[in-house]
Amino acid sequence: MAEQEKKRIKLPETDEGTVLFNVPFPTDLKDLKGMAPIIIKQPYHIDYIHSYGQDSPFFAGLANGKLLGTRCGPCKYTYGTPRLHCMYCGGECDWVELPKEGAVHTFTVCQYGSEEFLKETPFVLILVEWPGVDTLFLARLMGVDPAKPSLDWVGMKVRAQFKRLSKFKPTDVYFVPA
């Protein structure tokens, strides 16, 4: 095919996605090993479709001002954080309402956090205990001074409060000193 007849094939381009217009390049390829790394930003966003599945009644409970745990039908082991099947006997558990008032089993004050929660720092995390309930529940504690943490907080009586506008997250319930 003669040169003048050859149609020029070209990928159509816009400057969308262009991050840099010029990159220095050595004349001698041996110099490439001394080149500084090219570091670019790669965004990555995802919306998950997360089903609470068998745990869904817990979140429905929070939306209705009730804190639910589960109790094993066969062995009566009582879970402060619900699970449908018992870890010990494998039996199916039933939903039970937990007392509004419990106590701080342990706590921390987070001055830093994961990126998602960084803007909420400092925040107080507690594990709540109840007499007669075999396991604990992780929650936020409001109404204490995060600048003055003290071991005295362990054992503090706390009361569950519920968000008026449910977000269908475990933080729909939080605790305050009772």
Binding site: C110, S114, F117, L125, R140
Partner: peptide, 22 residues
């Protein structure tokens, strides 16, 4: 646990802090 633990303020340093407070 992304249903019960992570959304409350998921942060391992916080979890270990609660363990050592106890």
């Amino acid at each position: 646990d992304v249903s019960f633990d992570y959304p409350v303020g998921g942060f391992y340093s916080g979890y270990y802090a609660m363990m050592v407070v106890r």
